[in-house]
Design a protein around this nucleic acid. Sequence first.
DNA 1: TTGTAGGCGTTATCAA
DNA 2: TTGATAACGCCTACAA
Lengths: 343, 343
Amino acid sequence: MKNVTIKDIAKICGVGVSTVSRAINDNPGINPATKERILKVIDENNYVPNNSARNLKRSESETIAVLVKGINNSFFSPMITEFEKIIQEKKYTFVLQRVDQNQNEIDVAMEIEKEKRLKGVVFLGGYFSHSKEKLCKLTVPFVLSTIGMTDLGAKKEFASVAVDDEGESFKIVDYLCSLGHKKIAILAAPEYDESIGKLRMEGYKAALKKNGIEFDNNLVFELIDGNDRYSIKSGYITTKKMLKSKAECTAIFAITDAVAIGACRAIWEEGMKVPENFSLAGFDGLELTRYYIPSLTTIRQPVEEIAKETLRMLFGMIENKEKINENVVFPGKLIIGESTRGI
Amino acid sequence: MKNVTIKDIAKICGVGVSTVSRAINDNPGINPATKERILKVIDENNYVPNNSARNLKRSESETIAVLVKGINNSFFSPMITEFEKIIQEKKYTFVLQRVDQNQNEIDVAMEIEKEKRLKGVVFLGGYFSHSKEKLCKLTVPFVLSTIGMTDLGAKKEFASVAVDDEGESFKIVDYLCSLGHKKIAILAAPEYDESIGKLRMEGYKAALKKNGIEFDNNLVFELIDGNDRYSIKSGYITTKKMLKSKAECTAIFAITDAVAIGACRAIWEEGMKVPENFSLAGFDGLELTRYYIPSLTTIRQPVEEIAKETLRMLFGMIENKEKINENVVFPGKLIIGESTRGI
DNA sequence: TTGTAGGCGTTATCAA
DNA sequence: TTGATAACGCCTACAA
């Protein structure tokens, strides 16, 4: 069964293709009667316009793509929801594009930029390590959202929105200190990490320092290596290892909520409890942390605000046709849950 | 800055477009030296072939699309991962397409079928209510995966893979009965639900019946109305309501793991505990249920197997060019966690 | 081994 | 209000 095209419809209706085109696109200057007739034939024949042809022909379209690496990260869910809402309100088309682990997101962006004549791009995600040069090749406006970049030189060149990973990490570890904890372990990213893993580690160190506690490498426990390093399972495994090591500590800072949840289970399985035996803090503010028992002390990232600001900047660039290189940093919110207590 | 096209590259290199095309597509019959030269120019000029034009020209492509409604459902994550893996092994291109709540997934499928010259489609998701007629309009092979359809007449016409929602629901409620529970509440979908919500309810009823327990409408608690009706929050709210109602029960069947987690928190907040005061069972087998405290008694859906079987059928249809209308039903696995106990 | 030209399905321009 | 026709960027006979 051959694909039915605009020509077929035109032929059936006994009109020219342009008339059919007008009918499809709600073009004014078409006789309502013919339009209706055409639409009916279209419906009867299950005609669907070919988007490839449309995109090819159109010189521009009102669409914005959000690229996410690791789409199953539950931290992104509410952000994506927010992006979609705002983009639709602006009457733009929203395209969510997953980027798989071994793909380069910039290449993907360049591809769909041409393919869909994008107006703008949002890069969403925690790991991102691309050269300034490569990023410069992108000709559409884009914003880096929630991307932890340690290379500040590169960062300053582009529009970005994120939470202050280092500062917030400092805040929560400082809070642990204020509770009287002196031996605070960290479930951290592998050392080579140059992104949020590193930033949050820096915050941890800074907080210790401020509180006159010496950094102790024996209290650093590296999460598993791999794309799921910030997962529940990863936290579980690493904490088991930590407990076996007999390292002495009274509090644990997990650099991610999911990691904290895995840690909690591991502790429980060894016959101990949170917060009785260990105070436990996470980072991100996942919805789950409110419902978990005990609810988790964490840093809540203001996801809606981040999403809003990301798009405000992006639309600013689109509408004023000028590049912005603001770096907006949001504060997080320290949520005090049931997982921490004074010593 | 004008978009650079294949013509520009050809001009710069002083060759014809077809030569450039050959270079891009690893076509044999091209001088390695010219090829290299062309590739270099391509790189220098940031040329990226336009996919719309490619798709338009190509009469077919080896790509399979997976359409998901409500992509942030964590139940889908491992399935999607599995789909991706298998599709890539088959050297096909994998396209993950989100369908938003007010979009009709069949329309979306028809659109991208034309746009990308799809070879096959997987519909993934729990809610699906489309007429047989509409589904018949799709000309590419497709499989309904993990879709609870109560309309068996319609279902039989198409290829589908799913867990036996009703049977597994029966199994877990029967298990609760076997523990001695006689007053078993259910956190259920709104009554109008015609999908998994209804199926799981049927299983619940059947299990009660088998165990000589009369169905009691006062023990049915409807989840909130909306797209997030199977969320943690929904379970939390509904359970709060239930506890206020003073309904008497010793066990609770939540039709979803997320709902169960919300329920657990609500119970805890009212000063009670799982399983001491209520035995609690979920459904789905999310990774989280293993780590939750207490770990959740649930039905684990064999997601990998479901994904494998889905694609086996799909590729069968693609390769043999004939429609299959098998309905494969997988058993789930009753996972006995810490959230249930004998009375 | 390479180049020319036609066409994929649309939309937009121009005449009619 | 309509219809022919030229692009859009690419691939692929076919010819050289």
